[in-house]
Write a protein that binds this DNA or RNA. Structure first.
Lengths: 227, 227
DNA sequence: ACAAGAATGCCAAATATTTTACAATCATCC
DNA sequence: GGATGATTGTAAAATATTTGGCATTCTTGT
């Protein structure tokens, strides 16, 4: 019953799934690195092979098209990880990674991680679970992008961004960020937010969106587009 | 250097990654089931927990919105698998699954699979790799949907649908199918195909699209949108 | 060889989304 | 406490995409 689907499945809540003992086992083989605000952590196309786990701070994923400003972003929080592709799929980095605020990251080189995994089937199992869940999120996001109209899609993202525990929620960030993660323009997002606001489902403020009643928004979404 | 990205990362080439010995180990614990053309294999929302591996035939994934005909599809081939979500993420079925042609499927119940996996870290490792690669495909598809204009997006899908070995390729199916997997209308796809045809990159025919020079199409795509 | 159904190609009107632009509000740095 | 840059709200014009429709071509079954 773990709903908790997320932004776009890029990388969420990975090592929260591990037991404390497992966490410390993983962390102990990792190398701690610190990044300052806005510092680049990894670049799109790079061929390094690390699994990175965020201990503190945040990491922004983005990508710039040749035409300049076209950037798509997602933001990862402490406990999230990234770099699975570089380790398990032998692929180059798919995004640019930047630190947001002072950030501590545990980096585990590919070989070390593989060795650790081969010795602990438990952690391996968890990893499979996490990957499956990420894949599920990505699949659902893909579905949403393809079949949901503007407004429900925006609503869906807002719900995905909340952690789902509290009855009410808020999200801090600019509407431009929201637009980027949705793959839309700020104007379109603004339009969608206006409509949701008109229906009393959300409140907007400077760099902040409040959802007074998460359930109500969820129900509206279910009603307006069953998916 | 395994490019071979695919349709939308829903489920590809899973057990081709295993060694013959591993394959037979997995197959031996599976239950063989046969389906006739168009027969339903599993329904969206169902809560069964099987990993299914296609031995022969094909499986179409689809989904119908409340508003009737809204259907999004992908097609899986022999060697592909599906159902990871039900097994590893405890999630209900995300799509409707139908057999295309006479189809043989190996079904492995959740518990059996987990037990098998716990006994063979090798297979587990492969599974992680496969999941990571699927996730990569899904991520790239998501990127494409969000940032690529109509025509490059269509070109990208065509390339993804080819196996990438031969210098030339063809794809068999209707333009409506293509439109559904892209999340566009037939008219839009027709428009995109017209443009690609005009540039001599593809040839269209009844239920068939030919790519005389896969490389040329790839280069055109790289040139027109670097991603 | 013919009829019927399926698929393609294309057009025009209706919608959706982006672009461009500008005024108003908010936060922060001196 | 005021200036400045960032962010929001919104509108109008330009594009992109869908909807609905129709003629043509292709395939299949008889």
């Amino acid at each position: 019953m773990e709903e908790k689907s997320v932004a776009n499945g890029i990388g969420r809540a990975v090592f929260g799934a591990l037991t404390p003992a497992q966490q410390s086992a993983v962390f102990s083989v990792g190398r701690l690195r610190r990044y300052a605000d806005k510092q680049m952590i990894a670049q799109c196309g790079a061929t390094d092979h690390y699994l990175s786990i965020i201990e503190a701070g945040a990491v922004r994923l983005s990508r710039v098209g040749r035409d300049g400003q076209l950037a798509v972003t997602a933001t990862l929080q402490p406990g999230d990880s990234f770099g699975e592709f570089t380790v398990f799929a032998h692929a180059p980095r798919q995004f640019d990674f930047h630190a947001i605020g002072d950030t501590r990251i545990r980096e585990i080189p590919r070989e070390v991680l593989l060795k650790l995994l081969s010795q602990s089937p438990d952690v391996m199992g968890k990893l499979i679970e996490v990957l499956a869940r990420k894949l599920l999120s990505a699949t659902q996001a893909l579905e949403a992008v393809r079949s949901l109209p503007l407004i429900p899609r925006t609503a869906r993202l807002l719900l995905a961004l909340t952690d789902g525990q509290n009855p009410s929620a808020r999200w801090e960030g600019t509407q431009t960020e929201l637009a980027d993660t949705l793959g839309l323009t700020r104007v379109s997002v603004s339009h969608a937010l206006r409509e949701l606001r008109r229906q009393g489902l959300i409140r907007t403020a400077y760099r902040r969106i409040e959802i007074p009643d998460v359930n109500a928004l969820q129900e509206w979404l279910d009603r307006s587009s069953p998916l």
